[in-house]
Design a protein around this nucleic acid. Structure first.
Lengths: 195, 195
DNA sequence: ACCTGAACACCGTTCAAGT
DNA sequence: ACCTGAACACCGTTCAAGT
């Protein structure tokens, strides 16, 4: 009977429904369109209803950010440590590219301190088990995460502007820029390996 | 006579006046307070007057971002190349820390494509003259700039929240995190040197 | 547990017009 | 060259109240 209840379309919304609707707005529109008012409209409720689920917009966006980055798989532990770092970084970028404007959302969520930053901890852990000191591992994680987030913000903003026809193609190869920047950092990381 | 005219206090505003006022709002308040309406009020004009100087807010912020990063000095060419990179990165971070919330402004300005990104070119040039290929030099520049911008966004956002008393000290050592991350990247850069 | 009505104090931007 | 008046179409958030 519980199943029957949850299949009704006009049920009340849960936290998960709100986050799914928020992601849909990013997918079909943009961050500029992700307002509390519009999100509420999409869910068929009034704007203030959202404040039952989240204390404010910032907290909602942080939950969304963690949600999106939760899709990144932890690479098998039997792979070489630097390959695990590569997979984590590439997976992080792919998860962000999967949802338009999500890099911007992640950036402000990490800044606000409302995000768990789980992926940063995962990357640091991979570097540490690879033989780096905890401190070096965290430095590598920081450099990787900021590279991924920063470059993806640029890429997604350009993509959004091109989609709106407000500007032409940039001619930049973001995939190449990412791969090159990452390799520099991984070279630096290998330099610190002690085992 | 020209001097006499420009010393009058109730003169019309120039582009430079607008940018100075914008920076003052960041200094004395925050990015959240930097609205076109409030900026206009600070200058004693009506909001729409600003649109004579700048086509939109985005363009105004990009000019402000380039302005703020224009304060970074180019290190003497006779210094070792990796020391020049260190000085540029440290100078970039210092210029951002000098104006609250400016890292966020720089991030969106770089993303919008309305910024010159002059500092990124300077850093790439320093790496290239240090013996890196153009491609490696640009990768190093990208990694450094994203580290500086990303970490400073986190630092300035925390600072703003602490200033508003909305949250306590984070206990993070941003200066240390920056130095550690930068050293990883510089180690990676030294790996690519060919001369 | 989840939502509404009504309101407060804001936004960026445009247009025609003024000096 | 620089600015105003008036308007359009929005924001996030709060409060008391409803079922």
């Amino acid at each position: 009977m519980r199943a029957a209840v949850t299949t009704l379309t006009s049920m009340s919304n849960s936290r998960t429904d709100v986050l799914r609707a928020a992601r849909d707005i990013l997918r079909e529109h943009s961050l500029a369109d992700l307002s509390m008012r519009r999100l509420a409209a999409e869910l068929g409720v009034s704007p203030n209803a959202l404040y039952w689920h989240f204390p404010n917009k910032q907290t909602l966006l942080a939950a969304l950010a963690d949600d999106i980055l939760g899709a990144v798989a932890i690479p098998p532990a039997d792979l070489p440590w630097d390959e695990r770092l590569n997979l984590l970084a590439t997976g992080m970028r792919a998860a962000l590219l999967d949802v338009p404007d999500s890099a911007e959302v992640v950036s402000s969520s990490w800044a606000s301190g409302l995000s768990t930053k789980a992926i940063a901890a995962d990357i640091a852990a991979a570097a540490h088990t690879g033989g780096l000191s905890l401190r070096d591992a965290e430095a590598v994680s920081t450099a990787i995460c900021q590279l991924v987030i920063g470059l993806t913000i640029e890429e997604q903003t350009r993509a959004q502007m091109e989609r709106l026809g407000v500007i032409g193609p940039s001619g930049r190869d973001f995939g190449g820029e990412f791969a090159d920047g990452l390799e520099i950092i991984l070279d630096g990381a290998r330099t610190r390996r002690r085992s």
